[in-house]
Nucleic acid binder design. Structure first.
Lengths: 204, 204, 204, 204
DNA sequence: CATGAATGAGATTTCATTCAT
DNA sequence: GATGAATGAAATCTCATTCAT
């Protein structure tokens, strides 16, 4: 085959693959992972069921790919934000981190729910699997280590701070998920930062 | 029928009902909600599948009942703890609240995961449904209102504190769920309280 | 449950199981193993597809059971014939053996074809599996060992005689399978015996 | 188009056709006829699936061609052997016949199994089809007719001798197929001939 | 002609639910 | 009320075949 038509075919393949992932995202977001149907995904993607299986081994692999795409999107945004603020002090970087995550959750409400659902179920099947939240925790840990080093954070309890932080982020996401509240990202971010640094207590 | 045998029969019914819920809890904890099977629940309960349907309308109703039992157990513990400390100051009551929740999560790891999974899915189907976490948030809200009134908490952002608090609790629970760490309830509770009041920042 | 209705239920179960095997036999005989369809088997048995799976793990297990029933039928007939002639000389016992096998093949033409087909495929998958023809060979070997001991058979080449004998039997069966000839069992048996003892050559 | 490039193209076509048949032989030998897959055949042949369909109408035609090639190979060998011994006596010709068949079976174990499998299935679909074993029987019949004419064979039962002979040959082949025994062609041939002429019985 | 992505009919299998005993 | 065999709708997955490039 000549190189031109090979490249064309490759582009078409990538387009189809993306269409399938988009369709899977729509279907699983609408019905959850356990209820999303392959036939419906095919219909949404404008392909036949067989085609789904040309691109993904089986239903599980499709979900896997979907979550991975989502995970990579989130993490690349987070990593970008961290890279851009690489020279900043801890507070600025934390603000960038929290802001990015909150914004991402706001934009991807439904898929976040699927990810959480599947990561719970996946945890039962295969506890070793990469979890988005776990990856997020890794970033949070590094960040918090910087905060400790800068003397911006308490040293005691520091090992739990990433867990607290991710919990707060997730909780905010879920609150948004189940309510009709439209979250305002910047305000939400600022409030989270205040809470993280000062807690809920009054200054003495 | 005489009242005595009526009472006996009622007791038997209740025993069966409880056995079924226990079996459902074991099955769903082991396989997750979407994969738990009715036949297996019957086997675990020592009854036939038909009997499940004599006690519960369908699979959904059984799960509903299971989650409700779980929710009521948690909430009654929490409410007990709050009632016992009704006359105490905010900090003491918050300590009782957090301690109770942490201890409950520690004891019911697997079921908590199922509850979260189903509440996510349920949220898609019927957004009005009572959620354990939401009910917990209601308690947290009342408690925090007390804290605000006592001037123990900042007034600004106070509407988000329940969300943050519940997020932290859940995150600690999940961390325990997926790691092999054995959590030590009292220490965990103390650290959470420190974080809640003072945040992660250094005192100036 | 009371014992009477338990026994009744057991009888019904056995009847259903037999009906399913009969239906599978009909379907696989008509279309061969690889083309026989589960739905059609269910239809022939007068049950639903689901019921097939209540009795047999999967398609393969159903075929397995069918072949086993067939194998046991043949072997029990053969063993009966051998037992009844236990005190007879070699020739009489061989006559009984050959006669029984020829008669069985005549009666079960189509199923024999399925058995042969599956035993070939099964040999690829799992070379350890019991084969009807192999079991038959075991009987033939024992019989021929008796013949050798009685000085009725040549000692040299004796290790191949069972193979030759079973080959002849099978070949006769297949000839019958593919032709419209109606075989006459007794004559066929007598001819096989003559050939087995004297070969095709003229007496000098 | 000039004749030279036409011939070249024809040679290429034939090479591709042979590569496809070789690939089909490998695939069907490995997985049996009913499980061999077109895509895998294409991969083994180093062509695309589409190309398979340029050379053969469909899957059935490809198998047909494969079996025919195999049949022709066997029969041409047999016919060669018979032609070379055209002037010899019956025993020599029979020896040539048996020796050729045994050697061929030894060399083509897996394919012989496929042929048997398909001929059984084919027999169900289209009882008129040419069968390798039947063709072999035809040669055996002619040969045996010569033997009868030469007074080397008994006249009674002679109509069954071809069936017996082919059965013996096949049985020896299958024995080799399923065991790890390496057969020694000449010894095997000699033993078969002894059995065919004299049977298993002791000379009086 | 060759290619290989797309097709979709068709098969297997699962399992919540029903209902005769 | 309890039982558990039967049901059958629904879902997943396979793979021979087609056809635009």
């Amino acid at each position: 085959m000549n190189p031109a038509s090979k490249r064309l075919r490759d582009r078409l393949r990538e387009a189809t693959r993306a269409a399938i992932l988009d369709a899977a995202q729509a279907e699983f977001s609408a019905h959850g992972f356990s209820s999303g149907r392959m036939e419906e995904i095919a219909r949404r993607a404008g392909v036949s069921v067989g085609t789904l299986y040309n691109y993904y081994e089986d239903r599980g692999a499709l979900l896997e790919a979907l979550l991975e795409r989502h995970r990579e999107l989130l993490l690349s945004r987070v990593d970008d934000a961290l890279a851009k603020t690489a020279r900043d002090g801890f507070e600025g970087r934390l603000r960038a981190f929290v802001g990015t995550v909150v914004e991402h959750f706001r934009e991807n409400r439904a898929l976040v729910a699927v990810a959480i659902e599947e990561e719970l179920a996946g945890g039962r099947r295969n506890p070793k699997k990469v979890h988005t939240l776990r990856e997020l925790s890794v970033r949070a840990e590094a960040l918090i280590a910087q905060g400790v080093k800068e003397n911006a954070l308490r040293r005691d309890d520091a090992s739990m701070f990433p867990t607290y932080l991710v919990g707060i982020l997730r909780s905010v996401a879920v609150r948004v998920l189940h309510s009709d509240e439209r979250i305002e990202s910047d305000a939400a971010t600022a409030a989270i930062l205040r809470f993280f640094f000062q807690g809920a207590g009054k200054r003495p």
